[in-house]
Computed example of a mutant assay.
Amino acid sequence: MDATEDRDALLAAARGGDGEAFRLLTDPYRHELQVHCYRILGSVQDAEDLLQETLLAAWRGLRGYEGRASVRAWLYRIATNRCLNALRDSARRPLDRAALHGEVPLPEPTRRRGRPTWLEPYPDLLLEELPDRAPGPEARYEMRESVSLAFLVALQELPPRQRAVLVLRDVLGFRGAEVADMLDSTEGAVASALKRARLTLAAEMSDADRDTAPLPDSPDERRIVEEFARAFERGDVGTLLELLTDDVWLTMPPLPLEYQGHAAVGHFLSTIALRDRRRYVLVPTRANGQPAFGAYVQDPRTPILHAHGILVLTLRGGQVAAMTRFMDTGVLSRFGLPRSLRRGDVPPR
């Protein structure tokens, strides 16, 4: 039995109510569909929810699937439209912005920007589960770039429909006619949306970061990351600044505050992050294809280290071009990291 006959047999069985056949039919696409939803929504939790909605809708709609498109394209159609519906629903709700009041007043930011306050990091552990499937020939972005934080942030600046079109065309490589069918649109409308999306993305993203970043897990990347971790754990702001580019950015989703440059970032590190000899332990991990850490603050009165979010580094050449600290400690579990550690249990780097 060839692949087409096998698929047809599974499809017939699934239409007859065979749940195992449906699982075998859809399982090869689960992980990539979740990443697709994450790109469009920016939230891992929302992506997980929308994946389940997609599979439920596919199960219920099997009798309406006529087989003119591949099972994969059919599932992407369902997932994309579910994501667009979710974005329309969320647009009607007030934004849930984090309170700006901390233990001490925060310095005046370089700028306040309506960045996606819902943005969450995506664990590389989940990316490793993606099937080794090359995108279509018209794709413009490699896998590593299309999950980077810079790409995700820029993508969230697009209107939802443009966002979906750009991901389907330039990341996944679907043809214009396929995307038009998925969105119940025309090829002309898809081409127009894609053109506008590309212009916005080009203005938002820096070519320098993606062109000069060291390869993942390369000796150059490991050296930079280790030097950064040692300086951060020592509270050595001077050494940290030597490791940062002159135009470095510091952001802290969900806070809409951004700090840029040595003066602003150094002041923030000295007066907020590393104030009063506060000490951290950084546990290595990876997020969005980038080096990252689970950050833990040492309690001077006990042997307990308390979770302080996920810190993701964006590298340019031999320096750190951006630090993104995700403040929600709830994301740690997705990286296999605990909410707290005892000092004796800290894993070696």
Score class of each variant (00 low, 15 high):
E187R: 04
G188W: 13
G188K: 13
G188L: 12
G188E: 15
G188N: 13
V190M: 03
A191N: 05
S192K: 11
S192A: 15
S192Q: 13
S192G: 08
A193I: 05
A193C: 03
A193R: 06
L194C: 04
K195D: 14
K195F: 15
R196H: 09
R196Q: 09
R196S: 09
R196V: 11
R196C: 03
R196W: 06
A197Y: 09
R198F: 13
R198S: 14
R198G: 15
R198A: 14
L199T: 14
T200F: 08
T200K: 14
L201S: 05
L201C: 03
A202L: 13
A202I: 13
A203F: 12
A203C: 12
S206A: 09
D207C: 02
D207N: 11
A208E: 14
D209V: 15
R210C: 03
D211C: 00
T212G: 00
T212Q: 03
A213L: 08
P214T: 14
L215M: 08
L215D: 13
L215P: 00
P216S: 04
D217L: 00
D217T: 01
D217H: 02
D217V: 00
S218C: 05
S218R: 10
S218E: 13
P219E: 06
P219G: 04
P219Y: 05
D220H: 04
D220E: 14
D220V: 05
E221K: 04
R222G: 00
R222W: 01
R222S: 00
R223D: 08
R223I: 02
R223E: 09
R223S: 06
I224W: 05
I224R: 05
V225D: 01
V225C: 01
V225Y: 03
E226V: 07
E226A: 11
E226W: 07
E227D: 14
F228Y: 07
A229Y: 07
A229H: 08
A231H: 11
A231M: 12
A231V: 14
A231C: 09
F232M: 04
F232V: 03
F232N: 00
F232R: 02
F232A: 02
E233Y: 01
E233S: 01
E233R: 00
E233F: 00
R234H: 02
R234K: 05
G235W: 06
D236T: 10
D236L: 03
G238A: 12
G238V: 09
T239I: 02
L240C: 02
L240I: 07
L240Y: 03
L241Y: 04
E242H: 12
E242Y: 06
L243C: 09
L244N: 06
T245F: 09
T245M: 10
D246F: 05
D246W: 04
D246I: 07
V248K: 00
V248W: 01
L250H: 10
L250E: 06
T251I: 15
T251G: 14
T251A: 15
M252S: 10
M252C: 10
M252W: 04
P253W: 05
P254Q: 11
P254T: 12
L255K: 05
L255H: 02
L255S: 02
P256F: 05
P256G: 11
P256Q: 11
P256T: 13
L257F: 10
L257I: 13
E258L: 15
Y259Q: 08
Y259G: 08
Y259V: 11
Y259I: 10
Y259R: 06
Q260G: 04
Q260V: 14
Q260M: 07
Q260L: 06
G261F: 04
A263I: 15
A263Y: 15
